[in-house]
């Protein structure tokens, strides 16, 4: 095929990693992970609707250290996609598109993600011990 001999555009590996591209890739990866996570969410809901036995199974899984790790990863992923999504909505208004602002927004998103995740777990853990 002639197309196989054509020169290709530079591939990703020739570029230095930078905040802008990393956050963009992470946004899509987070979206995919969250879509997969909805399976667990629906399993949780349906198990609760089926009865106490089914619910005990999923609750024991979510309460195990693997479940808690998944849950922590899920909350972090969801908050990242949320914060970066708000950044996208802001861009849609044609604001904040200068490079320094894009970088400032990126670091803000990372800080907000960490803050929201920490806040949610602190509130959750207070309720656990109460």
């Amino acid at each position: 095929m002639a197309s196989e001999t054509r020169p290709l555009s530079p591939h990703l590996q020739v570029y230095r990693w930078q905040l802008t591209s990393v956050l963009s890739i992470l946004h899509r990866a987070a979206g995919l992970a969250l879509a997969a996570g909805t399976i667990l969410l629906i399993w949780w809901l349906v198990a609760a609707a089926i009865g106490p036995g089914a619910y005990a199974g999923i609750r024991d899984f979510l309460g195990s250290w693997i479940g808690l790790l998944l849950l922590f990863g899920w909350s972090l992923t969801l908050y990242y996609h949320l914060c970066n999504g708000i950044r996208h909505l802001f861009w849609d208004t044609a604001h904040g598109l200068e490079l320094p602002q894009v970088y400032a927004g990126g670091w803000t998103v990372l800080a907000a993600t960490a803050a929201l995740t920490a806040m949610s777990w602190i509130i959750g853990l207070i309720h656990w011990s109460a």
Binding site: A48, Y55, L62, G124
Partner: peptide, 25 residues
């Protein structure tokens, strides 16, 4: 996306609370 912004924070906190050891069905 706009609809999900307020819903998500409410939701995550509840999910964490309900997976706690004290919370049952």
């Amino acid at each position: 996306a706009v609809a999900l912004v307020p819903l998500v924070v409410w939701f995550v906190i509840w999910v964490i609370i309900l997976t706690g050891s004290g919370a049952d069905r």
